[in-house]
Write a protein that binds this DNA or RNA. Structure first.
Lengths: 143, 143
DNA sequence: CTTGACTCCGTACCTTAGTACGGGGTGTAT
DNA sequence: ATACACCCCGTACTAAGGTACGGAGTCAAG
């Protein structure tokens, strides 16, 4: 347990500060989400302090529903001088659209399940359950 | 292309009628979602007509948000004489709860993204985009 | 100078729900 | 009798996002 104040972070320290596992850092590096840091003579990764921000960026973007692939595109936009703020906003908006679609799908599932659930008084053997019956009984939607 | 009226279905016919691929049928069999059918002398699967219903049951339950594992539990309930209709309904209701949680999570993402998106007027280089800035700038929620 | 924690690397494994592949046998229409 | 569609099986691969493993090297403290 070394806690000497250093100008850089080891991979374990970075992982800890960013709230992820060490393996996750190396995984993100392989995916190109964080840059390969300089190495010590013995090959240890030495991260600058702001690497924490970078990892947290990834985590926050993920929490907003972006995939790692999309996150690396977002990061590429930032670096590319020909890309604009509008490009970024466009991505945010299309992600909102995606989320809306997913919500709609879930609402539909929920409505169907609610209807099914209401059809069942909860008495009697499962073999006669109207829920299972209806799943079984043939089939509007498909084919 | 044989369309002679038979009392059974080949795997391809079953797949076609159920609206899935042949490989999916074999996959469901491996997963225990559909029973292993009798075989012809040469090893071909011979499905009873009601196998179509079974496959469609799986597809419909999946469309309602159940995983294949959960679907096999549902199917097990139906066969188990000690299980009741209430057990089935309970599963439906806890799935509704799960869906509600997912919706809530998506609503939160959406709200956060909407706020971010509004902070960006869409002008200027991506490197100065307030959306990226905020993703970058440190960090309430984690750690 | 040894112990224990940490790091390196490559590779394999996990989950979910399939899809694809390759080499072989079968069924049937022409 | 031969073409062609269909079926068999086991295995590997896909996507996403990591997690785990094993053997080796390294670092700092006691």
């Amino acid at each position: 347990m070394k806690t000497k104040k250093m100008r850089f972070l080891t991979i374990g320290q970075l992982a800890h500060r960013a709230g992820v596992g060490v393996e996750t850092i190396r995984f993100y590096e392989r995916k190109g989400l964080i840059a390969e840091p300089p190495r010590s003579a013995s090959g240890y990764r030495h991260y600058a302090m702001n690497a924490v921000r970078r990892v947290r960026f990834v985590r926050r973007a993920k929490a907003l529903g972006f995939s790692l692939k999309e996150i690396s595109e977002l990061l590429a936009l930032r670096v590319d001088p020909s890309s604009t703020c509008g490009d970024v906003r466009q991505r945010a908006e299309s992600k909102i659209g995606e989320i809306n679609e997913r919500i709609t799908g879930l609402e539909e599932m929920k409505a169907a399940l609610t209807r099914l659930s209401a059809s069942c008084r909860g008495r009697g053997p499962a073999s006669e359950c109207p829920i299972l019956d209806e799943l079984d009984r043939s089939a509007e939607s498909e084919h």
